[in-house]
């Protein structure tokens, strides 16, 4: 039997739910050297800001049990360079809908990025990362309060006709309240979770491993937390959810979807296995067969 892997996110049809998560796939170029990336459902490209950023000092990476901490700090060439150089290159190697991942340190920055990317035909969805600190509010991350999360959502929605997914930070007390605030402010979907704040110490040197002391913890270790948060949010909102966090296998994709995800992003696993997304997509039909699943859409949110 032919298994149906297709899903739909706000009218955007994807051949399968597997999407490399922002920051773990660049703009596709390096991965296209080793496999045809057109097998992917979509790509969430490297987090883009208004201005070019070098990011944080090195070391930016720390090994952890079943995961890693990164403090890259949103290194990217800036939205104008992304539009002028990266997207034309990506278009040559990828003919499917693209998710534009956007970050900002002020509402104005988010708005400017979204306005510019709104004009890009291949960009099907704007994914707005609200885990960044707000420079106008003492550095508190936009995603840590329902009010500021809603303010970003509203501002961005006003300047684009494309579906807007808000990517939530898990470093909050009540993820559901923030997701609902985004929904009420007009968000078309929710992506979750971003990385968990973490820290490692080099006990011989008596110093943090990461130059910036703390960073985002991701990898298989956070998968149960991600499943829990996807489950909570998907059952509290009516808009679609993209599940993200520690996904490493086709079984993980199924689990995320059962928790309520329509799309599933694969992040840290790409860093240790460059073929991760390809292997997951190839494995999915077999796992579906084993579990008696004909269409992936049949299992979205089946856990009550």
């Amino acid at each position: 039997m032919v298994r149906d892997l297709s899903v739909e996110l706000c009218g955007v049809k994807l051949d399968n739910p597997v999407i490399p998560a922002s920051g773990t796939f660049g703009f596709g170029k390096e991965m296209a050297e080793i496999y045809d990336i057109n097998i992917l459902g979509s790509i969430s490209f490297k987090g883009t800001t208004r201005d070019a950023r070098f990011g944080n000092p090195t070391p930016r990476i720390a090994e952890c049990p079943s995961g890693l901490i990164n403090s890259v700090g949103l290194q990217n060439p800036g939205v104008d360079a992304v539009i002028a150089h990266e997207l034309p290159e990506l278009r040559k190697i990828f003919r499917k809908p693209i998710i534009a991942n956007i970050s900002g340190f002020s509402i104005e920055e988010y708005v400017e990025c979204c306005q510019k990317l709104d004009k890009e035909e291949q960009v099907a969805i704007l994914e707005v990362n609200i885990s960044c600190p707000n420079v106008h509010n003492g550095g508190m991350a936009f995603g840590t309060s329902p009010e500021s999360a809603a303010a970003v959502t509203k501002a961005v929605k006003a300047v684009t006709t494309k579906p807007v997914f808000i990517k939530l930070s898990p470093n909050v007390t009540d993820i559901v309240a923030i997701a609902k605030a985004c929904e009420e402010a007009g968000a078309d979907g929710i992506t979750l979770i971003n990385t968990m704040l973490g820290m490692r110490i080099d006990i011989a040197r008596r110093k943090p491993v990461i130059a910036n002391k703390m960073g985002g913890f991701s990898g298989a270790a956070i998968f149960p937390i991600a499943v829990r948060m996807v489950y909570q949010v998907a059952h509290a909102v009516k808009i679609p959810v993209i599940g993200c966090g520690g996904v490493a296998t086709a079984e993980d994709v199924i689990e995320m979807m059962m928790a309520g995800a329509t799309g599933v992003q694969v992040g840290a696993e790409n860093l240790r296995n460059p073929y991760a997304c390809k292997e997951i997509i190839e494995e999915l039909p077999y796992v579906m067969e084993r579990l008696g699943i004909e269409k992936l859409t049949d299992i979205i949110g089946i856990i009550e």
Partner: peptide, 22 residues
């Protein structure tokens, strides 16, 4: 030498600033 994440250019973990940019 720099602490690496992926080792093949996608994670930006090992970036340095050079006279030709990052």
């Amino acid at each position: 030498e720099e602490r690496m994440g992926c080792g093949f250019g996608i994670c930006m973990g090992c970036s340095i600033m050079t006279t030709n940019g990052a």
